[in-house]
Nucleic acid binder design. Structure first.
Length: 195
DNA sequence: CCCTGATTCGC
DNA sequence: GCGAATCAGG
């Protein structure tokens, strides 16, 4: 397989989407993650920022013959932090979660809906991260789960919109990183309404 | 052990 | 330019 225009395009797209090299390699097929990474570097987009700002940090090894800053040598990274998280393209044939008629107040046999963070006090950050992640969840069904897919349940099993996160597990753990964050609370405010 | 990206270097 | 091997983490 060679790097056709199309494949390079896919590579760029996926890389900027935050996909890992191995995932991209699987998608493209015929290449290993090493090949992907190698290509990424050659394309000069090792940094996932879609647009490399002006200050193309001159490599310390090969200093260009034309230093942009004649009087400002020491300043490797002036970038303050203007990276605007841009989900932008999200083409998935998935239902945008109609969530409507399924408002039955029926609670099957289930009492303990898993961890579902609710009244608990979990790191606001973790929660934010979770809801963010759940938007991009793969929404797997029970049967689609594997040892490597996040098994965090989302939604109410009693309704028609219920799925499992399905994102890559962090490793060994049953959930993706975001969900591990809320699933495995060290143990904090364990003080229920102590009688 | 699983995974990640980064680099090197023969091709 | 390419990518396997290797390196350096998490």
């Amino acid at each position: 397989m060679s790097w056709t225009d199309e494949r390079v395009e896919t590579l760029k797209k996926m890389w900027n989407e935050g996909q890992s090299a191995s995932q991209i390699a699987k998608e493209l097929g015929g290449v290993t993650r090493n090949a992907v990474i190698g290509k990424v570097h050659r394309l000069g987009l090792s940094n996932r920022t879609g647009v490399a700002p002006q200050p193309t940090p001159a490599a310390p090894q090969a200093a260009p013959a034309a230093p942009a800053q004649p009087a400002a040598p020491s300043r490797p990274e002036p970038a303050p932090q203007a990276a605007a998280p841009e989900p932008a393209k999200e083409e998935e044939d998935d239902t945008p979660i109609p969530m409507s008629a399924a408002r039955r107040a029926i609670i099957p046999a289930g009492q303990p809906l898993p961890p579902q963070p609710s009244a608990n006090e979990i790191s606001p950050e973790a929660l934010a991260k979770v809801s963010e992640v759940e938007k991009g969840a793969k929404k797997l069904t029970l049967m689609e789960l594997t040892e490597k897919t996040c098994k965090w349940p989302v939604g109410d099993p009693a309704t028609d919109n219920f799925w499992f996160c399905g994102l890559p597990t962090q490793q060994g753990k049953p959930y993706c990183e975001a969900h591990v964050g809320v699933a495995f609370q060290p143990m904090s405010s364990r003080r229920d309404r102590r009688r």
